[in-house]
Simulated assay, not measured.
Amino acid sequence: MRKQQSKKPVSGHIRLISGRFRGRKLPVKDVEGLRPTTDRVKETVFNWLMQDVRDAKVLDCFAGSGSLGFEALSRFAHSATFFEFDKQVAQQLQQNADTLKLDNARVEQGDTLSKLATPAAQTFDLVFVDPPFRRDMVQTCCALLEANQWLNEEALIYVEFERESTPIFPENWTILKEKQAGQVCCRLYQRT
């Protein structure tokens, strides 16, 4: 007689690559459209940000796995706020923050663009914009960050988008770094 297999969704994990939680693996919910930033891309991004993460107030706009925000916290960012639409994914982010005993991580469940459409209660030094692909959210997200004063004066903004798309970014953002990895275009901007 065959055992009945459970239908429990398979989960993956992210690995923190440097800092105080180096090597720690955190579970990630298996949700359609969730694509954690690869270690290779994450390493590139944090090499770009090497001098700028410590003590930064971080906003992870479409947190998903939380890979970028947790990496920033591991590298001694002052704090990180995670915006995540999916309720289960947001709960997993909170569990991961609890596992790491982080009192400087805040998870907010809800629609990122709706949150950014309101005036900012807090401003940020470092912002990650890595929305679900093929949903045309990058340009709107970046415009809202600027229009509603979510950014500190010389904030750094890391953006990932589909190679074939051509979003328009705020005029006062200067490209510092750019890289293409497969179908993904990665850019680091600074607000000027």
Rank of each mutant, 00 (worst) to 15 (best):
Q51W: 08
N96E: 08
K42R: 12
R135A: 15
T38A: 06
D86P: 15
W150R: 14
R24N: 08
C186Q: 08
G69A: 06
W150G: 05
N47K: 02
R24T: 09
M1R: 12
K25C: 10
A105M: 02
D39R: 08
S11G: 15
N104W: 02
L188C: 09
A56F: 02
S67G: 10
D136V: 07
T192K: 06
Q180A: 07
V127E: 03
P132C: 15
W150P: 00
V184D: 12
F161Y: 15
A80S: 10
R24H: 01
V10P: 13
L113W: 04
F70Y: 14
D86S: 11
G64T: 04
N104A: 10
E162P: 08
R22M: 00
F83V: 00
N148S: 09
Q180N: 07
L26R: 07
Q51V: 04
Y158M: 01
V129F: 06
D111E: 14
L73E: 02
V127L: 05
P132A: 13
V138K: 03
E171T: 13
H13Q: 14
E178P: 00
R134C: 14
L176D: 13
L188G: 02
I175Q: 00
G182V: 05
D136Q: 15
G12C: 03
R191Q: 11
L144K: 13
Y158S: 05
V45R: 02
L73S: 01
E164A: 09
V41G: 10
A147N: 03
V10H: 11
W48I: 05
A120C: 04
D136L: 14
A97Q: 09
E153D: 14
E71A: 01
V28Q: 05
A72K: 00
F62M: 07
K179D: 01
S165F: 04
G23W: 06
G33Q: 11
V58G: 07
D125C: 05
L144E: 11
F82K: 09
E108W: 10
L34Y: 14
L113R: 12
V28S: 05
A63C: 13
R135W: 08
V138H: 00
D111S: 15
Q122G: 06
N148L: 10
G110I: 08
R15N: 04
Y158R: 13
M137Q: 04
I17G: 00
W150L: 11
I168C: 09
Q51S: 07
A120L: 05
F169K: 09
F83E: 02
I14F: 02
L144I: 11
L102F: 07
L73N: 07
G12F: 01
G64W: 02
C142L: 12
L151Q: 08
G69T: 03
R40K: 12
P27V: 11
Q190M: 03
V127F: 00
